[in-house]
Each structure stands twice: as C-alpha cells, then as structure tokens.
Nucleic acid binder design. Structure first.
Lengths: 197, 197
DNA sequence: TTTAGGTTTAACCATTTGGTTAACAAAAAT
DNA sequence: ATTTTTGTTAACCAAATGGTTAAACCTAAA
C-alpha cells in the first residue's frame, strides 16, 4: 500500500468517527503511521483531504442508488432491491450514512458542490414512475415525494441515528445487526402493504 | 433577560449549528453580546455549557414522546398523535433532531449519561402494547421493534437529514415545510395501512 | 455612606492546531 | 556515474483556542 493510500484510509477512518472539525491532522498521521508533513505533501490541506474522503464516501453510495432507481423495473421490484442492497452495503460501512448527513448539515455549501457531480442521486425518473403507476391504478394515490421519503427514511435512519437507536431500544451491536438484517425485507413489505391496492 | 440566559440561548444556537467541536467560545460570546469570560463565570467550561444545552434540548423532546407512548390509548391513536405532535414541535426547532443525533454519535458516552435520566424515552410499554394488539388480532403480525423503528424513522429522518433531503429532491425551505406539514397525516396513514388487518 | 457581594471587562496564558521549512534519503532519469 | 525528481523526517511557526486573573464596576444591604 502506498503512503497516499495509507493516508487516505486513515483519514477516512478518523473523519468518519470525529467529523471534520473534530478530526486532528496528527491523529490521522498516527493512524496512518506516517509523518504529519506527508498529509500536506499529498493533500495540501485539511479541507482538501476531507473533500477527497467525503466525495469518495458519497461516490460509494450514490451510483448504487441511481442504478436501482433509474432502471426499468416495476416500482415494487425497485423498492425491494433498494432496501436489500442498501442495507447490505451499509452494514459494511455502518458509519457512512451518519457521516455524510452530518457533514452535509455542518457544511451546506457541500450540497451545491456535490449536486454538480454526475454521480449524484437523481430521483426524477422514479418520481415520474410513481405518478404513472398511480394513474395506471397499480398503487394507491399518494404524493410521490412522500413515498420516496418513506423508503429513504426507513432504510437510512436506523444507521444515521445508530447510537441513539441502540441506546433507546437497549440493544447490543449484534442485536442491531440482526435487526437490520431482518429489516431488509421488512421495509419493502411494509411499504408495499401500505400502497398496494 | 439575565446574562446567564443570554449565554444559554446563544450557546444553544451556536452548538446546534456547529456542533460541539465546531463551536467556538468566542462565537458564543459574540452571539450573546457579552465578554467571553462570562461564559466561564457562569458555566465553568465548554463541556459544561454544552452539557447544559444538550440536556435541555433532549429534555424538550423526550417527555413529549413518553407522554404519548406511555398513555392508555389504542396503538393507531398513539401513532397518529405522535407523528402529528412530533412534527409540529420539531418544525419550531428544525435543527434539534440532527443536533441530538450528531452529538450522540460523536459522544457515545452521552448515551450512558442520558439513559440514567428519568426523562429518557422508554419504549417498554408501547412494545408490549404492539405485541398484545397482534395477539388480539387487531393488527398484522410484525416485529414490534421494527414497527417502532418505522414510526421514528419516517418522522425524524427528514429533519435529521434535512440538508441532504432538500438538496436531492431539490426543494426550497418553504416547500420542505409544506412537505412536512403534509407528512403529519401521511405517515400515520401509511403505517396504519401497512399493519391493519 | 460604607461595604460586601456578585458581575463584568481587558489583558494575559498555555496548549493545541494546521501548516511550513530545510535538510536528507531514495529512486528515476540523464 | 551524476543529476534531478520524488518521498520522508524533525524541528519549527503563527494563529487560534479554551481558560484564567486581577482589577474595575455595580448595587443592595448594613
């Protein structure tokens, strides 16, 4: 592994855990087991290093979402695939959603930046699809944006609010993972039950 | 308004916007229009000031949740009341959910601390109620914790991930508020549709 | 009117933090 | 073989940051 890769991995880890303002360059250097000056040699500044990490994190999630939402399958099929594959993926990076949401909130100017990215999630197609399936009488009439929000909320929230959720319903890490595993099918079942005619 | 109150309000504002690590004592002092030394005079340290703010924020939400979840009404009634009153309340403090979730994630030791608080949300009763309504055949069989997570996710997520949501579905602040207004009844309708027999 | 109490301020301090520099080593190019 | 480029390190720096202090300033009771 090259030094640059070591730095990137370490930065990914530290930023994810502490956030941008909470992370320390020295801590990243220690984690990567290299001299702090190397961080600046390869990435110039904390901001740039963070941006590299953030965009990479975002880039991991977005294409997957788009791939499913912009395919040509039926709505029910898309919802099933999305919940299943999103949860599977995120279980490998359980802190990614909260990291992205947090830094997005603390840094709203990022939104503008990433909205220009071609990899950004674009809900246009699936929103139209929902409308048309309603007109065709395949599902109950429902505001398309609400339905989309429902799917996202139910899938992403438990990870984004992980610590709180574990604390309130009082479960261990393993139980949390089991719950998420169960949730892969639970979510699509719930949603489909709610909107099917 | 006393100086202490001015400080508290300013701290509430700044911490909520920047998080613990991102907030600066000087910025809080400026916001409160007082001398920085006063912060330490009244609150001793950044940690203590933050804790006061955080616990107050949490204390605003928790009793409300408990009040509804631990009442003696039917499940459907509770769900309706919860989504409606939670969203109404949070629309007045739109950054409270993300603040609590974020600091909880960055500071997992807080969990231990607030779990000892008598005001903490306790889902025991409503979880039992769900079980019993299933046994009585009033609703479809469903893992109680999943149902609880569903309600929370759909209600809290849009606020917690506000910036991201606005960016992705491309809506203004006003449209967001309209969407949340609509959501007050949408959520309970969806959930009840999904679980009613 | 004095005085004792809390309140407020400006100046100061030690530490932390992101970032730089200059010397040095290793590899690549000539 | 020598020069040039790239990678690496330790020491250093200025600015920012949380926190302190000692004196000044009220103000209400004695």
């Amino acid at each position: 592994m090259t030094t640059e890769e070591k730095i990137f991995e370490a930065a990914f880890k530290v930023f994810q855990k502490k956030g941008f303002t909470g992370a320390r360059m020295q801590e990243i250097a220690d984690e990567a087991e290299i001299n702090k000056a190397m961080l600046h040699y390869f990435f110039r500044s904390k901001e740039r290093l963070f941006e590299a990490v953030f965009m990479n994190a975002f880039g991991k999630l977005a294409p997957q979402i788009n791939g499913i939402f912009n395919s040509d399958e039926a709505l029910f099929e898309k919802i099933k695939k999305f919940t299943d594959s999103y949860i599977s993926f995120v279980m490998e990076y359980p802190f990614l959603p909260q990291f992205i949401i947090q830094e997005m909130n603390n840094n709203p100017e990022f939104v503008t930046k990433f909205l220009k990215d071609e990899k950004r999630p674009d809900p246009t197609k699936i929103l139209k699809q929902i409308e048309s399936e309603i007109e065709l009488g395949l599902i109950k009439p429902i505001p398309p944006k609400q339905l989309l929000l429902d799917v996202f909320s139910m899938t992403v929230f438990p990870f984004a609010a992980q610590t709180l959720v574990k604390g309130i319903i009082n479960i261990s890490d393993e139980e949390f993972f089991q719950l998420m595993e169960e949730r892969k099918i639970h979510i699509s079942e719930q949603i489909i039950n709610a909107i099917k005619k």
